[in-house]
């Protein structure tokens, strides 16, 4: 029975991870470059799970130490704890980090450094361009990020940003934050990027709604810090992208 339960728990974990990789929601949790590693890990637990039924039943006269082969009976709560990732993964619908995670994080309005940013901005390639050709020349997240601490330099420039809506009590009714997370390994290290947007109908936007914002940048101030503010001309509601984070 012990053996059967161990096998079930290990194989369930492997299959769960495999399905997450197969339907690409694995990207909600980790950097894309670790996907293969997760797949290997899933195969690993499947293999060790099945091995309980393949190992030869008893010791022969070899010189290895017998006690290392004793499979101490696993306590039931140990198995329960190891079932938790699978249970949580199956019962809680997969969703990328959003506004709630921002509540607890340092809003990275000023601390962007060039060294932190990805070399190749994946934005336009991955997400298409809802505004067509006219906005091709507009600024994206990374160009803004490089000049973030010198908002004057961005004055009057066109920009188009895609992200989720965030708001807290520091925001006026006609403004919100368009946010994105930058992930270097897994969501535990996600750093929040955000640009303050001015839009008369800001109050109607729900938290976590994904939007594509087009407008012009203007140097302004937020929470006592000089920041570029995006004065929106158009705000379009969009579906969350398959790849919700930026990776560095």
């Amino acid at each position: 029975m012990d053996k059967l339960l161990k096998t079930i728990v290990l194989c369930a974990l492997g299959i769960f991870l495999y399905t997450r990789v197969a339907n690409n929601t694995i990207l909600f949790y980790i950097h894309e470059r670790f996907t293969l590693l997760t797949l290997l890990g899933a195969m690993g637990v499947l293999l060790v799970g099945l091995s309980y039924y393949r190992q030869p039943p008893h010791e022969h006269t070899h010189n290895y130490d017998a006690h290392n082969h004793q499979h101490a009976p696993l306590r039931w709560w140990g198995l329960l704890i190891l079932s938790l990732p699978t249970l949580l993964g199956l019962l809680v619908p997969p969703q990328p980090l959003g506004a709630v995670a921002l509540l607890n994080r340092e809003l990275n309005l000023g601390g962007w450094q060039e060294s932190n940013l990805p070399q190749v901005p994946p934005l336009s390639r991955e997400e298409g361009n809802p505004w067509g050709q006219s906005a091709q020349a507009s600024l994206d997240w990374f160009t803004i990020a490089r000049e973030f601490n010198r908002p004057q330099a961005l004055n009057g420039r066109e920009a188009q940003l895609t992200g989720f809506v965030y708001r807290d009590d520091r925001f006026a009714p006609d403004s919100f934050l368009v946010g994105r997370f930058l992930v270097s390994c897994c969501v535990a290290d996600a750093a929040a990027l955000g640009v303050v947007v001015q839009w008369p109908e800001a109050a109607e936007l729900a938290l976590d709604q994904w939007v594509s914002v087009y407008g012009r940048l203007q140097s302004g101030e937020f929470a006592g810090q000089p920041v570029p503010i995006l004065v929106a001309e158009r705000v379009q509601l969009i579906a969350p992208p398959a790849q919700p984070y930026f990776y560095r």
Partner: peptide, 20 residues
């Protein structure tokens, strides 16, 4: 939900290394 996402993030990231 955020807790579940971060937990799975750390676990999934670390799991292959523990398997190895």
């Amino acid at each position: 939900q955020t807790f579940a996402t971060i937990f799975l993030g750390i676990f999934i990231e670390a799991m292959p290394f523990l398997v190895a």
